[in-house]
Design a protein around this nucleic acid. Structure first.
Lengths: 253, 253
DNA sequence: ACGCTCGATTTGTATATACAAGTAGATTTT
DNA sequence: AAAATCTACTTGTATATACAAATCGAGCGT
């Protein structure tokens, strides 16, 4: 019997190199391998897992690129020192935000339909061009004044019933969070002069700079995108407990 | 003659997979391969470079992990859409950031002196009006192009020798972080038309919206402020591409 | 004791081969 | 015309093999 495996490498859909990565991450997270410690060599991992050395090598190489391990030729592989963690940004509900600072929240749904994804959008969502996606455009208001506009593209796989929801009672963000846990998020912020249809709905003119927050959300391999445009003059706070009274904070819908 | 190479793979000390990566990056940077475009298949790259498919595969896989490419099984390899550039917080230095993505970093110090704090600034820093503060204005450039402008007001108590530093070799942020641990941070983001002196230094006109990040830092009870203005069109990411599953919060790095 | 060499171990890279799996377009069938 | 099927091409993974290069310690000679 050649393969005396210390761990179980299944034949599921998960690639073997990924299973080896998971195994190593587990041992680090469980504390069995402390930061700075030398871990098993490739040869030992081969013996433990039953996969080939090249597969083990790939797993170790990727974990090194991801900053979890440090390797030294001739010496060995070590658990990387922990990288410093920084401030966190809470996701909170825009409706709650507005109510908490005494405003009257309302929203208008300007679009809620299915569309064909144009190639660039399709690529961003890892879909075939002109696939069916759900699209919503919602304007959030505080005492009747437009505060932010959010344009969302949803992969029907995530939320088949997205179009049937009543987003005047639950925000899209709250609804989507209730369906599945988010795997990963990426944000991009930019300042720009908004397009005419956005300016129109937000009631701003063509000279006012607008803050846009683009968010891409992964639920497993499935992707949703959301672009939020903020009313000019709004300021958006990240972290920090001591918000001065001058700058209110704007939530994410 | 088996190898009819379109590019020259030398036998130097640089690994071949790295040379292939460089070749691809070159073609992207030169504009030969535009974002969204399909690039050569693995087979074509093998023919062009003379290395094995596995080596080409490694180069492509790593570039994909680094966010420069997008691959779709059965379809092809594509140049990724604009790679989100600079990190929002210079927890790691802006200089490092720029160099890491292949640019040439430089900076200009436009002001480094002590000033009297005007009332509103004094209030923000919890100082008596017209107290002495240190003020620095620095423009960071990538290949000579202005990328961001930072204007800092420092409480002399934190950094008595602030004015004597050579900020061409160490960024203010790095220097300040080396002095004392930060107790608390607050950020405010806004989109605005920058003031004339800022537009002048960033070489932008009065129609271009500018992204501003205001940061207030507490070291104990002592406060420093920093306003960073970003060159229009730049986009900035919050949270990494490889964010591990952590629901509900977004890391800033 | 000191320095040296040598060999075992470990990581780093490169290749050929093989098969799986997804895509897109052409072709055939219905 | 529409649907189903086929096929060529592409990427994704896994393995065995080979050699290069760095490290570390054992053993040797002076």
């Amino acid at each position: 019997m050649k393969t005396r495996r210390a761990i179980n490498i299944s034949t599921d859909d998960i690639p073997r190199y990924q299973q080896v990565k998971d195994y190593i991450i587990d041992r680090i997270n469980s504390g069995a391998w402390q930061p700075g410690m030398k871990i098993d060599s490739e040869a030992e991992l081969v013996a433990a897992t039953g996969v080939s050395r090249m597969t083990v090598n790939r797993a170790l190489r990727e974990l090194t690129a991801e900053g979890r391990l440090t390797r030294m030729q001739g010496s060995g592989t070590f658990v990387a020192e922990q990288k410093p963690q920084s401030a966190l940004l809470e996701i909170h509900s825009i409706a709650q935000e507005i109510r908490e600072r005494g405003g009257k929240y309302s929203c208008e749904i300007h679009s809620l339909q299915e569309e064909k994804a144009r190639p660039d959008l399709a690529r961003a969502m890892s879909l075939a061009p002109y696939s069916t996606v759900y699209h919503s455009v919602i304007v959030h208001k505080d005492n009747g004044v437009p505060i932010q506009l959010s344009s969302r593209f949803i992969n029907p796989k995530i939320a088949p019933d997205y179009l049937k929801q009543d987003f005047t009672t639950i925000t899209p963000n709250e609804y989507l969070l209730s369906l599945a846990p988010i795997t990963s998020v990426e944000h991009v912020i930019e300042a720009l002069i908004a397009e005419p249809w956005v300016r129109d709905l937000l009631e701003i003119n063509s000279a006012e700079p607008c803050l846009a927050l683009h968010r891409k959300t992964w639920v497993g391999e499935v992707i949703a995108t959301c672009s939020t445009f903020y009313y000019p003059g709004s300021r958006y706070t990240l972290g920090g407990r001591f918000t001065p009274p001058s700058a209110g904070s704007i939530g994410i819908s």
